[in-house]
Amino acid sequence: MSTLEIKGLHVEIEGKEILKGVDLTINTNEIHAVMGPNGTGKSTLASAIMGHPKYVVTAGTVTLDGEDVLEMEVDERAKAGLFLAMQYPSEISGVTNADFLRSAINSQREEGEEISLMKFIRELDSKMETLEMDQEMAQRYLNEGFSGGEKKRNEILQLMMLKPKFAILDEIDSGLDIDALKVVSKGVNEMRGENFGCLIITHYQRLLNYITPDHVHVMMQGRVVKSGGPELAQKLEAQGYDWIKEELGIEDETVGQEA
């Protein structure tokens, strides 16, 4: 079993403190959901864990099986087993999806142990089929001119090809219709198992109908303000966030407001 542990995490962007002490522990074989309205720090948490260049960690720790993640370069974090499906993935012109994926897979392997072209193509074909992606997507330039939904599927394709220990999915459901949502969920559910842990960031409960979480956390004002089981997501769906704000005496849940 592997463990990703976030302790007392404080994060700034451009001098403004966004995360104000986040604690979260995720084990493999667990699915966690982080929910919360817009502007409460969810993407900041994801970005800080992955090492986005704009986000500065000012206090706290992130460890993966005891290893200090924050000390690692971004590529080392990926090699250690972290993956982030980004809310706004970059477009990279002139680099085909397939070439990029093969580079990414080979970067996790030793020299001389590179994946064979045959095996790569076979895997790619099968994952793309699961995600109901057109074969020609493999030869298109990475995310260039992809629709919102295509980008989301492409993030999940990368997840399935790279098989990380821990994946963070940042709003993988936004902009997807129900059919696409089912397809993406199918991809994530295929990953479930003893060697995989997942943190799903969403502000709708909808996605959690298809990927049942083991734990649900609510973020407000740059902190995890409430945690529970799947029933917490149901309650949020039915009643919204106001009852939590009342319970905790929060007026404005976004970052920058103090309780």
Partner: peptide, 8 residues
């Protein structure tokens, strides 16, 4: 950042 986040 995006490419490196995939281990490259």
């Amino acid at each position: 950042y995006y490419l490196m986040s995939r281990g490259i």
